[in-house]
Simulated assay, not measured.
Amino acid sequence: MFNTVTIVGVGLISGSFSLALKEKGLAKKVIGVSRTAASAQKALELGLIDEALPLEQAIAQSDLIYVAIPVDVTIPVMKQVMDLVTDKQIVADAGSTKHALCLALNDHPMRRQFVATHPMWGTEYSGPEAAVRDAFVGRACVICEKEKSDPAAVEKIEQVYRALGMHIIYMDADSHDTHAAYISHISHITSFALANTVLEKEREENTIFELAGGGFESTVRLAKSNPAMWVPIFMQNRENVLDVLNEHISQLRKFKACLEKENYQYLQELIENANKIKRIIK
């Protein structure tokens, strides 16, 4: 599908994306652009990329430029990328927020070559070592502002994600950020807060290690996520995150009040209502 693909950032998402492209024969060559020489070298050693180059040299050789870096640096880097591409190249990103980026690129003369995407997958790990095979199988990929992109570019990006095992959802950028706050961003805040709660109240690390069962591990897993990635996400999606965080705090207060007032009937009702999520998530 592509002769040469450049991944800007050589971490979890881009590294997994590159592995999938290589294994499915969708790219003959993958070039990596990294902020650090150490990450680029590790990506080479792991076979995630075939060559490491500076941004301008990489873009000059590429059919597809795939940007997967923290959202606070995505906008300036994307502007650099868009200034360098031609109408024969496609640019896509994998960022967890979309409104700010789409707004920043809205009037760029090469806007139609950009496809705004968010593959809805990730782990708590980061860096090239975190890349895994078959990462995207069965997951959703959101494409935003489809109508502002060249139809041929959109079709090709859709083909790539579908070949990786994903299904496509279309949204405007604002809706994406709202739903991402509800489904993804609040989960991370909750996990960070729970980890801090346990670290504050349970001083014996050995006890945490020995007693932590599956429920605790799965709930607090996201607390291991990289702050360099998540602080910028919370900053860019601040209003939506605050909205869902206020509702979450309200729900926690209900549980607290039930215990304080020994209102166990209402506590059962709260849990039974929460059980309705089983209709959606099996």
Rank of each mutant, 00 (worst) to 15 (best):
I157W: 05
T207P: 05
Q265L: 04
E217C: 13
L55M: 01
S191N: 09
T6K: 01
A43F: 11
L164K: 08
R111G: 06
E145K: 10
K278R: 12
F114M: 03
T97F: 06
I13P: 07
E210S: 14
M82H: 04
I13C: 07
R112V: 11
D243L: 09
H108W: 09
T219I: 13
Y66L: 02
G47M: 14
A195H: 04
Q159C: 06
E147C: 11
A43E: 01
A135Q: 00
V231E: 15
L245W: 03
G165H: 04
A228T: 15
Y264K: 05
A181H: 05
M229N: 11
I13T: 02
E155N: 11
R279M: 10
D172N: 09
E158M: 11
R279N: 15
Y161E: 05
F234V: 15
A180Q: 08
S225E: 13
N206T: 15
I65E: 01
R253W: 10
R253C: 00
S175D: 06
E145V: 00
A58Q: 01
D150H: 04
A116P: 05
S225N: 05
A274T: 10
L84Y: 11
D174F: 14
Y125H: 10
S225D: 14
I69C: 05
A140T: 13
P227K: 02
A40C: 13
E200L: 07
I69M: 02
V137L: 12
W121F: 14
L21P: 10
S96H: 10
I249S: 00
Q80M: 12
V81F: 06
H185Y: 00
H179F: 09
I280T: 04
L194P: 13
M235T: 15
E269P: 01
D107M: 12
G214E: 13
M110D: 06
Y182M: 08
R139F: 14
F114G: 12
T190F: 09
A38T: 15
R111M: 04
L245M: 05
D87Y: 12
D93H: 10
H179L: 11
I208E: 05
I157D: 00
G138P: 02
H176C: 07
N240C: 06
I65C: 04
F209R: 15
E272D: 10
A257F: 11
I49L: 12
N263Q: 01
V198M: 14
I271M: 08
V81M: 01
T4S: 07
S250C: 13
I168N: 02
D134Q: 05
L44H: 04
A104H: 07
K278I: 02
S175Q: 11
V5L: 04
L64E: 00
Q80V: 08
T190Y: 07
L259M: 07
L105G: 08
A195L: 03
L84F: 02
V10E: 00
A40W: 04
D107E: 13
F216E: 13
